[in-house]
């Protein structure tokens, strides 16, 4: 556990949070027929806990890096913190304005121009329109859009879209910033630039939670880290320590998979059995 400064302001408090997915409804394009067929064979268990018994706190000024294998529940956690998904059990207290940039391209409407999209995104984020107008020049410049700002977004390259999304999300200094894998997008130059901006926000004493596979980023810029596996916290504490454990466990998993054969019966059984979330 990192050195807590107990009198500091708590920005995020998660207590025993659990998120349950109903796999029956989660399927794309559910129709009456499918529901009917499933009702007939009611034996299927359709509940899936993407997160269970997750408790932690983020204080102002802290930058929490969330790491873990794919499908561990990292993105679900961010969605809960952003208020997008309500917890099925437990509760989350968030104190401060949240800006979430979970996948790039918030509010992006393909037919609208960049500038219209900025305004629309601002309205979706609930920002005061005067504030959006104030920040417009900064966003345009930061995203390096140039004359493209007046053409529909559908003509943009993925890099331009990523830059615009990042610029919008970080244009105002939110109290709490949630980032999901955003630092992996864009070219190397923009990656550097975005790192600087996030570091800027960190020093502005705002709370940040970011999900990433970039371990260097975690050890360099996060002052705390959390490893999540199968919907539960495995370890929370000093970034280096957590990253080491994650790499150790990933290596072990790879070994096991190799031993079982990736498509072997054992691997499939292990993947579907989903043992209870391991905890510290």
């Amino acid at each position: 556990m990192s050195a807590y400064r107990p009198n500091e302001h708590v920005a995020i408090r998660a207590a025993d949070v659990g998120v349950k997915y109903n796999l029956r409804l989660g399927k794309k394009r559910t129709t009456f027929r499918e529901t009917f067929v499933r009702r007939l064979r009611r034996g299927d268990r359709t509940d899936f806990w993407a997160l269970r018994n997750v408790s932690f706190q983020v204080r102002q000024g802290e930058s929490l890096g969330v790491i873990g294998p794919n499908g561990a529940g990292k993105s679900t956690l961010l969605q809960v913190l952003a208020g997008i998904i309500l917890p099925s059990e437990g509760e989350v207290d968030v104190d401060g304005h949240v800006s979430s940039l979970l996948t790039l391209g918030v509010g992006f409407d393909q037919e609208l121009s960049g500038i219209d999209n900025i305004r629309l995104a601002g309205a979706f984020m609930g920002l005061d329109h005067r504030l959006v107008e104030e920040r417009l020049p900064w966003i345009v410049e930061y995203a390096e859009l140039g004359q493209f700002i007046d053409v529909p977004i559908k003509t943009y390259s993925s890099g331009m879209r990523a830059r615009l999304g990042f610029a919008i999300a970080t244009s105002v200094e939110p109290d709490i910033l949630l980032l999901d894998e955003v630092l992996a997008t864009g070219d190397a130059a923009f990656r550097e630039k975005s790192k600087l901006r996030v570091a800027e926000l960190v020093t502005a004493a705002k709370a940040i939670v970011l999900v990433t596979h970039d371990m260097n980023w975690v050890t360099e810029y996060c002052n705390r880290a959390m490893l999540i596996e199968q919907g539960g916290i495995v370890l929370e504490g000093e970034p280096q320590e957590v990253v080491d454990l994650h790499q150790e466990r990933s290596a072990k998993r790879r070994e096991e998979q190799k031993a079982a054969g990736v498509f072997g019966a054992k691997a499939i059984a292990a993947a579907t059995a989903s043992p209870p979330a391991s905890r510290r």
Partner: peptide, 18 residues
């Protein structure tokens, strides 16, 4: 600069529904 905004500046979400 703090965000002037139309959304509440803090929220609690829990499993209890109104």
């Amino acid at each position: 600069m703090t965000a002037r905004s139309e959304v509440p500046s803090s929220f609690r979400s829990s499993s209890v529904r109104p």
